[in-house]
């Protein structure tokens, strides 16, 4: 027998604290596969954010720093400036990156920081119990939009990838989805490109990954993936919004 699929060695061999079916685990695995394939485990430094992925450092066998809520891109900037040969990535959710950390992510892109950002968008605050996020869809019910997000008072979902694609300093900005194996495979290629860019010194790369929160959405994991496909994809179109070509 020859192996078709094995556990990446950059993942630690522990049970994660994530809920059953949470795509954080998928995204972690894709990042770990990328680290393995690029042979950069010994020089990768991760930055964990605040949210469900606060303990990401337990799951990657690489050096890690745990950042304050929203500040991961600033922390990553500090690391990268001191150790430019390290491969530095942040792993942030939508509450962390698109709400409290909006200034930090935009300005990391503006500076063209040579870092990689893995951005998980599941349209809700997971860790704190299902509150409305800036990415929550119009009409989506959360604990703080119990009647559905009302654009009149709560505005519209923020589209991080489209926003950052307008920033000249950003080299690579792309959105993928984790709702089925084909899309997971594409996401993997995007993540790999985002790390490869950093190795080649091309500058700021961000990969947005559409994800689910079956616990706070109140669905089974399988139904949550279906809900993502039917509701999030129309609002958050997939694709590479900026690839650095022609600059």
């Amino acid at each position: 027998m020859i192996p078709v699929y094995t556990r990446p060695k950059s993942l630690t061999n522990v049970v994660t604290h994530y809920c059953p079916g949470c795509p954080h685990g998928i995204a972690h695995r894709l990042v770990a596969e990328t680290i393995d394939e690029l042979g950069i485990q010994g020089k990768t430094v991760g930055v964990a954010s605040v949210g469900c992925s606060v303990f990401a450092y337990n799951y990657f066998d690489v050096d890690f720093q745990q950042a304050a809520h929203g500040r991961a891109p600033a922390v990553a900037t500090g690391i990268k400036r001191v150790t430019p040969d390290s491969i530095v990535f942040t792993y942030q959710g939508d509450g962390d990156l698109a709400s409290i950390g909006m200034a930090e992510i935009v300005h990391a892109a503006v500076r063209g920081e040579n870092i990689t950002v893995v951005f998980i968008n599941n349209a809700i605050y997971g860790m704190t119990g299902g509150q409305m996020a800036p990415t929550t869809l119009v009409g989506q019910k959360t604990t703080t939009s119990p009647f559905g997000r009302d654009p009149k008072t709560q505005g519209y979902p923020v589209k991080v990838s489209e926003l950052l694609a307008t920033v000249k300093g950003a080299h690579y900005v792309a959105r993928f989805s984790l709702h089925n194996p084909a899309n997971i495979q594409r996401a993997k290629q995007g993540i790999k490109k985002a790390f490869q860019n950093q190795i080649e010194g091309k500058g700021f790369s961000l990969v947005e990954l559409l994800s689910t929160c079956s616990t706070n959405w109140g669905m089974t994991p399988q139904n949550a993936l279906k809900w993502l496909e039917e509701n999030m994809l129309p609002e958050y179109p997939l694709g590479e919004f900026k690839t650095g070509e022609g600059e």
Binding site: Y5, Y18, I184
Partner: peptide, 13 residues
């Protein structure tokens, strides 16, 4: 294995 969020599955051929 690609779908598994917990890296539980290994596949061979």
């Amino acid at each position: 294995a690609r779908m598994c969020p917990d890296a539980v599955i290994e596949v061979r051929r």
